[in-house]
Every structure is written in C-alpha cells, then in structure tokens.
C-alpha cells in the first residue's frame, strides 16, 4: 500500500509543472529572489533564530580548530605564559618545519599513504565484487548470508581486533603490512551494502543480452557494471582510505616504530630531551596529519553524501 502511494506521489511530482505552482517553487528551490524570501520570513520568521543557533554551534565546533592553530604557532615560552586567547605574536611558523623534521614525519606519512591506498583499493574492489554477487546473482543460502552481512555491520571492531592481533602474532604477521592486505581483500560489510543497493537498482536489461551471448559473469561485472558504479567506487575508496588513515589501534598493535603510521607517530614522537611532550609541535603535526582528509572531504562532499544516501540505510 505504501509502495503504491509512494509511486503515485512520485508521478504527481513529475507531472506537476513547477512554474505554475508557487508552493512547490518556494519549497524546492534554495536561494530565491529577494521578494520571495521576504514574504517567507514574514510568514515563518525562522531564519534569524536558525541563523543564530547555527552560528553558535559552528563557533563551538570550530573553536578547537582555531586553538590548534594558535598552539601550533607558539614558542615554548609563549605556551608556558598561557592565559590568553589571542593569536600569538610573533607567530612561529617554523614550528611546522620542526614538526616535519624533528621526527621522520615524511616516512610515517609515506607509510600512511601506502597503507591507506593499498587497503583502500583492495577494499573498494573486493566490496564491489561481493556487492554485485548479492545484488545480481542467485545461490542457495543467499538470504542467510545477507542476514549475516547486516549483523556484521554491527560487529564491534575492537573486540575482534585484539584476538586477530594474537593470531597474527602467532603466524608472524605482526610488524608487516600483510594484515592490511588481508583486511582489504576481505571486503567491508558497510561498503558491500552500499554496492549491493546500487547494483540492485540497475535495470535487468543491462546484462540480459550479455548473458544470451554466453558472456561470463566476471566479464559482465568488469565491463558493464563496474564502469557504471563510478560514484560508489569514489565514495567507497574515500571512506576506506580515510578509515585506514585515521586508524590508531591497529598500527599501534601491529606495527613498530620503524614502519608505523602517522597516527601513532603523532602521539609519541614529539617530546623534548626530558621526555615531556612538545605541545606546539604536536599541534603542528596534527594539523598536517588532518589536512589531507579535510581537503578530500571538502572536494568530494556532494558525491560522498550522495553515496551515503544511496545505501538505503536511510
């Protein structure tokens, strides 16, 4: 019943001519002309209140960002004197150079890039394969497996990580990058679900001709479906890349000082001769560590949100 209702609503939406329906115009187009906005604000008058709330919330959420820059630009003496909220004068931009040179920053960064890229690419591809299987193929036990997949999305990560580490230690994989290859090849439930929703929504005609021609499923997947799934591929890669880049526990458990990632190096690298943490360099290092993620997300935000909403979890 709800299905038919949704369908008829969709039809009504496409049939209606928006130019002759002022309500729809007002509801559906952001950034209206001045008169329209004034009329609306007279009717509901929410804008100013909403604007103020958003301003306060944003300031609260962004103040830490301001502060980490302030801290990163202070000298040890300026840090010690404390007590002020103002931008430091003079600002010590050379702290960023120290953050990169005082520890093997570039080596750790390269480790992070390498691990995140390899694991991200593997996860993106393996999840696509599995998602395709669940969306377009039939097999005994499929529904049960799909239930298991959903349950795995709720699987508590750190609870399985510790015993996995114990096992990796027994087979000599601790200190190597192989665990990330294995995790990458094993696909990620959430991304499988994302692909599955996407592939299930594509029309049946896509592979029918290919199946009649005796094309193998591998070729249908590789040549027809994978090229169509570019938006999901991008989302999946960014999500898995960011996941590995931000992960702290796995490299802390599995890697050592010589081959660990930036996430771990940040927390124990910046200390003075007496072993006390150098807060200004920690701040500068943390900024450099986060910037790539922020840039990626700002640039692909729209696509990322589309990918998220494509999952149908919502």
């Amino acid at each position: 019943m709800t299905d038919t209702m949704a369908n008829s609503l969709k039809q009504a939406k496409t049939l209606r001519d928006p130019t002759i329906d002022p309500v729809t115009v007002r509801q559906s187009r952001p950034g209206q002309d001045e008169g329209d906005r004034r009329e609306r604000s007279r009717r509901h008058r929410p804008s100013r209140v909403v604007f103020t709330i958003l301003l306060v919330v944003s300031l609260l959420l962004l103040f830490p960002v301001y502060w980490i820059f302030v801290t990163a630009l202070k000298s040890p003496n300026q840090l010690a004197s404390g007590g002020t909220l103002l931008w430091p004068a003079p600002a010590h931009f050379e702290n960023f150079i120290h953050a990169v040179t005082d520890i093997a920053f570039l080596v750790y960064a390269a480790n992070s890039v390498f691990l995140s890229t390899v694991s991200g690419l593997l996860t993106t591809l393996s999840s696509a394969l599995v998602g395709y299987g669940f969306a377009r193929l039939r097999g005994p036990g499929k529904n049960v497996l799909f239930g298991v997949l959903i349950a795995m999305m709720m699987m508590p990560g750190i609870i399985t990580l510790i015993p996995t580490y114990l096992l990796f230690a027994r087979v000599g994989l601790v200190g190597t990058y192989w665990p990330w290859v294995l995790w990458g090849a094993a696909a990620a439930p959430y991304l499988i679900f994302l692909y599955r929703q996407f592939f299930a929504g594509l029309p049946k005609e896509l592979e029918e001709a290919a199946v009649l021609d005796g094309c193998s499923q591998a070729r249908i997947f590789w040549q027809i479906f994978l090229p169509l799934s570019k938006p999901v591929l991008v989302t999946a890669f960014v999500m898995s890349f960011a996941g590995v880049w931000g992960d702290f526990i796995s490299p802390m458990l599995l890697l050592d000082n010589s081959n660990t990632t930036l996430a771990v190096a940040l927390t124990n690298g910046y200390v003075n001769e007496k072993g006390f943490p150098l807060n200004n360099l920690i701040a500068a290092g943390a900024i450099l560590y986060v910037i790539p993620l922020v840039l990626i997300f700002v640039f692909i935000q729209r696509r990322y949100v589309q990918g998220l909403s494509a999952t149908g979890i919502k």
Binding site: V130, G133, L137, R138, W183, I192
Partner: peptide, 20 residues
C-alpha cells in the same frame, strides 16, 4: 548461478571466517 554467486561473495565469506 550458485557457483558464480559463491565465487563473487567468497572474499567476504572467507575473510569473515578467517578474520572475525
């Protein structure tokens, strides 16, 4: 079809058994 299905989902099935 069943064979294809299990081939496609095998990375996740094997991975879940081994790593979870």
């Amino acid at each position: 079809q069943g064979r294809d299905f299990y081939l496609f989902v095998s990375p996740w099935v094997v991975g879940t058994i081994l790593l979870t």
